[in-house]
Amino acid sequence: MKRTVGLALLGAIAIAFIVIFGHGLTQDPRAIPSPLVGYPAPRFSLPKIGGGTLRIEDYAGKGVVVNFWASWCLPCRDEARVLEMVSRGYAEKNVVVVGINMQDEDASAQKFITEEEITFPNGRDAEGKTAIDFGVYGVPETFFIDSAGRVAHKVVGPVHADSIIEGLKKIAPGEAG
């Protein structure tokens, strides 16, 4: 009797062990969901690269794609073209793209913009405060903010055509794709 209970308990522990860790194996321990999704986006006001000020309030009522980048980050270079295309293609669909440069130097950031022929506005977050406000882990990260000013979606790592459209769908329903 005692033995049966013991064996049953052992079996249960073994199954729980396999289920829990089996589930754990399918998860990426580095993928951390942002608690900001579904909540109003943090406000920011940053010096614009090339002069002026970049404020999120200026885009009230529009969908905003906020991309955090740095000139030393190679994947940021890869995604720059995608972002530029979106910025041009979605202008009349009430979606704007803004870049936020972080952990970088003025000159290198400026050079990056010229080299990659970026036309959308970019702010410079020298002290990293805006990045921390957005809960950024590393570059690149892209946030999709809807017309009501809420964070609707977040992409960690470089955006590709597919992943950016997934985000755009959430901030410009019916328009994307």
């Binding site: 052992l10 073994a14 062990f17 089996g22 194996l25």
Partner: peptide
């Protein structure tokens, strides 16, 4: 998965 199975088997 190999190791997971082995640990579970060892335990049992």
């Amino acid at each position: 998965p190999f190791f997971l199975g082995f640990v579970a088997l060892t335990l049992v």
